[in-house]
Amino acid sequence: MIKTVGLTKKFNDKTVIYDLNLTLNKGSKLTVFAPSGAGKTTLIHILNGLDKNFSGKIFVKSKLTSTIFQEPRLFNYMNVRENIFFPFRLNKINIDDKIISLYHKWLNICELEDYEKYYPHQISGGMKQKTALIRGYLFNPQIIFMDEPFKSIDIRSKYNIIKFIKNYYNDITIFFTTHNLDEIPMLSDKLLLFKDKKLYKFKEININKDFDLQEIYDNIIK
C-alpha cells in the first residue's frame, strides 16, 4: 500500500508538489499523467525513498520495491543476464526453477534471447530499456515504480510487454508515470492527472471500458 498525507515538495522557493493526499491499495495500477517537467520523477523519488527532503507524510508498506527509471541505468560491467539478476544478488534471493522459467519467458517477450551475454555497450537503447524492465519485474517486488519506462521501446514490444505484465504480475502495485496519452489505459486502473504544470491540482479517474482518451484530452489537458 502507498499513502501520502499532505505531501509537499519545494525546490528552493518553487513548489513542485503541494499537499498531495493519495492512497493506493495493494494490487492497484495507477498512472500519473503529466507533461514533462511537472514533477512526476520527483514524486517517484520521494515514494521510493531516494528523496527524503519533503514535508508531509508517506507510507510505503512493502519489503520489496523496485524502480524502473527513465534511463536504463544498467551496470556497464555486467552483461544482460547479470544485470537482470542484480536485485536477486543484492537481496540474497534464491533463484529457483520458477524464476528461471519466467526469466526465459521475459527474454522471449523482449526478444533478448540471443543477447544474454552481451554487455550494455553492445546492445541498442531499446534493448537496454527492456533489460531494465525485466530487472525491475523479475524479482517479483510488491510495489513497482515506473518512470516513463517505455520511452525508447518500439510500439510492438511495448504492447507485448504490457500484455505480459498484466498476465503475470496482476497482484503487484504499479505506480506508473507517463506523458503519452496512449499508454494510460494499457497498464492502469486508476489515473492521476495533474494540471497547470504542477502537481497540486489533481483528479482521480477510474479507468473502465468507457475510458475515452479524446475526452480526457479535450476536457482536462487541452
Binding site: 525513498g49 527509471f69 534511463e71 543484492l90 537481496n91
Partner: peptide, 20 residues
C-alpha cells in the same frame, strides 16, 4: 551517481554502493 539510486531503489545500502 545515478547508479547509486539504482542500488538504493533495490534496497541496497552504502556498502552495496561501494561494492557495485
Amino acid at each position: 551517481k545515478l547508479m547509486e539510486e539504482v542500488v538504493v531503489s533495490f534496497n541496497g545500502n552504502s556498502v552495496d554502493i561501494l561494492n557495485y
